[in-house]
């Protein structure tokens, strides 16, 4: 780990101002960033601790939605009574990720900005365009069993591994962002980018912008469910996941961002069966050999989850 300076922010404005300095990074729970710093995958020179800013509140909004402060812990969100009653898919998704220790420490904002678990990203002796732009993609012709099936590029085939973000995508959440130019809101689906030629640029956040909250609209009508497939029962990134909230469907670990299955939703709305609907979505998927299985896996998993949510909603 390289030497760095540290400050504990006392206000959102102060944090955002401090973040304009080159080499500065926000830190909250640090469950991902500290690992990356130890491996020198990330080498910030200055850390701004936003974990203790007063933005951990979870409050209902006037329109019947929910505003979740960005520094709320993953555990606090998953165990929140309103979340459990009205947004169970979010609670289920959060507890499907990490371990209890990680969820106690990890923040909502940090969870959204966690970085991929691609082995070539973690191994600093291998090429990775995300870690070292221009070095190439070690995974493209490598051991890429868990690579993306949607929206990948020749520069990067990594996936976004947040479980929480998949549920938020299905629920139509947006994030509240504060930057030098003031406060604005970004739909969650527009927060993360596809890799294109610049996989090291992962979000549409401008430099120094801080996520202060996640805002959920009122829950859609119908059942909700989250299903995740992983190689072991806990503490493992997913091979694929699906979040269903009424007629809204999002897929996880299949792309560089949480993937809202718009094609499938459209088909469902016009009366297609769950299997037919997800088939429409997967018509746009492509795989590389080792990750071929993800296409039938998603087909089966999503059909089962959509059916389950439908039954719940009846």
């Amino acid at each position: 780990m390289k030497a760095f300076t540290y400050e504990r922010a006392t206000s959102v404005e102060g944090a955002v101002t401090a973040a304009q300095a080159p080499g500065a990074r926000f830190i909250a729970g640090g469950t991902n960033l500290l690992d990356l710093m130890k491996l020198e995958i990330e080498t910030p020179t200055h850390l701004i601790d936003v974990g203790r800013l007063p933005m951990a509140e979870i409050v209902e909004t006037p329109d019947g939605g929910l505003r979740i402060g960005a520094s709320a812990s993953n555990t606090a969100v998953a165990s929140n009574a309103t979340v459990r009653a009205r947004y169970p898919v979010l609670s289920e998704a959060i507890v499907a990720g990490g371990s209890p220790q990680l969820r106690n420490k990890a923040s909502v904002g940090g969870n959204l900005l966690q970085r991929t678990r691609c082995a070539y990203f973690y191994d600093t002796s291998k090429p990775c365009n995300k870690r070292a732009p221009g070095s190439g993609c070690g995974a493209l012709e490598g051991l890429n069993r868990n690579a993306a099936i949607f929206g990948a590029s020749h520069a990067c085939i990594a996936t976004h591994t947040s479980d929480m973000a998949v549920a938020l995508a299905a629920l139509g959440a947006s994030v509240e962002v504060v930057g030098a130019g003031g406060t604005h809101s970004i739909p969650l689906l527009e927060l993360h980018r596809l890799p294109g030629e610049t996989p090291h640029i992962e979000t549409h956040l401008a430099g120094g912008e801080l996520i202060t909250a996640v805002v959920l609209p009122p829950p859609p009508k119908g059942g909700q469910t989250y299903r995740k497939v992983r190689d072991r029962a806990s503490y493992a990134g997913g091979l694929a996941s699906v979040a269903v909230a009424g007629g809204q469907v999002a897929l996880g670990m299949v792309a560089h961002k949480p993937w809202r299955a718009a094609e499938a939703e459209g088909a469902l709305a016009s009366g297609a069966s769950p299997a037919e609907a997800i088939g429409k979505e997967l018509a746009g998927a492509s795989s590389l050999g080792r990750n071929d299985f993800k296409i039938p896996l998603v087909a089966r998993l999503a059909a089962a989850a959509i059916t389950e949510a439908k039954e719940q909603g009846q």
Binding site: R117, R232, A233, S234, Y235
Partner: peptide, 9 residues
Amino acid sequence: AQYLVPVQA
């Protein structure tokens, strides 16, 4: 996190 030994669950 990548070499998967069993966990309690």
